[in-house]
Protein backbone atom coordinates (compact mmCIF):
# COMPACT_ATOMS: atom_id res chain seq x y z
CA UNK A 1 0.00 0.00 0.00
CA UNK A 2 0.96 3.63 -0.36
CA UNK A 3 3.02 4.91 2.64
CA UNK A 4 1.25 7.43 4.77
CA UNK A 5 3.53 10.37 4.06
CA UNK A 6 2.38 10.53 0.48
CA UNK A 7 -1.14 11.06 1.66
CA UNK A 8 0.17 13.72 3.94
CA UNK A 9 1.91 15.43 1.07
CA UNK A 10 -1.23 15.30 -0.99
CA UNK A 11 -3.18 16.80 1.87
CA UNK A 12 -0.54 19.49 2.37
CA UNK A 13 -0.67 20.31 -1.30
CA UNK A 14 -4.45 20.68 -1.29
CA UNK A 15 -4.33 22.72 1.86
CA UNK A 16 -1.70 25.04 0.49
CA UNK A 17 -3.61 25.50 -2.74
CA UNK A 18 -6.60 26.58 -0.68
CA UNK A 19 -4.41 28.83 1.40
CA UNK A 20 -2.88 30.28 -1.73
CA UNK A 21 -6.33 31.14 -2.92
CA UNK A 22 -7.18 32.90 0.30
CA UNK A 23 -3.96 34.85 0.26
CA UNK A 24 -4.14 36.02 -3.32
CA UNK A 25 -7.82 36.31 -4.25
CA UNK A 26 -10.02 39.22 -3.27
CA UNK A 27 -13.46 37.85 -3.89
CA UNK A 28 -15.21 36.50 -0.84
CA UNK A 29 -16.86 33.71 -2.84
CA UNK A 30 -13.48 32.46 -3.91
CA UNK A 31 -12.54 32.57 -0.27
CA UNK A 32 -15.35 30.16 0.46
CA UNK A 33 -14.19 27.79 -2.23
CA UNK A 34 -10.64 27.93 -0.95
CA UNK A 35 -11.82 27.13 2.54
CA UNK A 36 -13.62 24.10 1.10
CA UNK A 37 -10.34 22.98 -0.37
CA UNK A 38 -8.61 23.29 2.96
CA UNK A 39 -11.33 21.38 4.76
CA UNK A 40 -11.05 18.59 2.24
CA UNK A 41 -7.31 18.50 2.74
CA UNK A 42 -8.09 17.66 6.31
CA UNK A 43 -10.52 14.98 5.12
CA UNK A 44 -7.77 13.37 3.08
CA UNK A 45 -5.73 13.14 6.25
CA UNK A 46 -8.60 11.62 8.19
CA UNK A 47 -9.12 8.92 5.66
CA UNK A 48 -5.45 8.24 5.20
CA UNK A 49 -4.97 7.64 8.85
CA UNK A 50 -8.15 5.65 9.08
CA UNK A 51 -6.51 3.25 6.68
CA UNK A 52 -3.22 3.49 8.49
CA UNK A 53 -4.64 2.31 11.81
CA UNK A 54 -7.35 0.03 10.47
CA UNK A 55 -10.10 1.97 12.19
CA UNK A 56 -13.13 3.74 10.73
CA UNK A 57 -13.17 6.58 13.26
CA UNK A 58 -11.33 8.80 10.79
CA UNK A 59 -13.75 8.02 8.02
CA UNK A 60 -16.74 8.75 10.23
CA UNK A 61 -15.18 12.00 11.20
CA UNK A 62 -14.63 12.92 7.58
CA UNK A 63 -18.37 12.60 7.12
CA UNK A 64 -18.95 15.00 9.97
CA UNK A 65 -16.44 17.41 8.45
CA UNK A 66 -18.46 17.44 5.26
CA UNK A 67 -21.64 18.17 7.21
CA UNK A 68 -19.92 20.99 9.06
CA UNK A 69 -18.54 22.31 5.80
CA UNK A 70 -22.10 22.53 4.56
CA UNK A 71 -23.04 24.50 7.65
CA UNK A 72 -20.02 26.72 7.14
CA UNK A 73 -21.01 27.44 3.58
CA UNK A 74 -24.52 28.32 4.65
CA UNK A 75 -23.21 30.83 7.19
CA UNK A 76 -20.46 31.98 4.85
CA UNK A 77 -22.92 32.77 2.09
CA UNK A 78 -25.03 34.68 4.58
CA UNK A 79 -22.02 36.69 5.67
CA UNK A 80 -21.11 37.40 2.10
CA UNK A 81 -24.63 38.67 1.48
CA UNK A 82 -24.34 41.05 4.41
CA UNK A 83 -20.89 42.07 3.25
CA UNK A 84 -22.24 42.84 -0.14
CA UNK A 85 -25.12 44.78 1.27
CA UNK A 86 -22.85 46.93 3.37
CA UNK A 87 -20.06 47.52 0.88
CA UNK A 88 -21.76 46.98 -2.46
CA UNK A 89 -19.03 44.54 -3.26
CA UNK A 90 -17.67 41.13 -2.37
CA UNK A 91 -14.10 42.37 -2.48
CA UNK A 92 -12.71 41.58 0.96
CA UNK A 93 -10.07 44.30 0.71
CA UNK A 94 -12.76 46.94 0.52
CA UNK A 95 -14.31 45.99 3.83
CA UNK A 96 -11.76 47.64 6.04
CA UNK A 97 -13.89 49.45 8.58
CA UNK A 98 -12.73 47.20 11.43
CA UNK A 99 -9.23 48.55 11.50
CA UNK A 100 -7.33 50.80 13.87
Amino acid sequence: MVPAQWYLMLSAAIFCIGLFGILTRRNALLFLMSVELMLNAANVNFIAFSLQWGNVTGQTFALFTMALAAAEVAIGIGIILVLYRNFRDTDVTKATTMRW
Partner: peptide, 17 residues
Protein backbone atom coordinates in the same frame (compact mmCIF):
# COMPACT_ATOMS: atom_id res chain seq x y z
CA UNK B 1 1.84 48.50 16.18
CA UNK B 2 -1.84 49.03 15.53
CA UNK B 3 -1.02 49.72 11.87
CA UNK B 4 -0.82 45.94 11.50
CA UNK B 5 -4.54 45.82 11.97
CA UNK B 6 -5.38 46.93 8.45
CA UNK B 7 -8.88 45.57 8.31
CA UNK B 8 -7.93 43.65 5.14
CA UNK B 9 -8.64 40.01 5.89
CA UNK B 10 -6.01 38.81 3.42
CA UNK B 11 -3.34 40.49 5.41
CA UNK B 12 -4.48 38.75 8.53
CA UNK B 13 -4.43 35.46 6.75
CA UNK B 14 -0.94 36.15 5.45
CA UNK B 15 0.26 36.99 8.93
CA UNK B 16 -1.35 33.84 10.29
CA UNK B 17 0.35 31.78 7.62
Amino acid sequence: VRRIQTGVVSNYAALLT
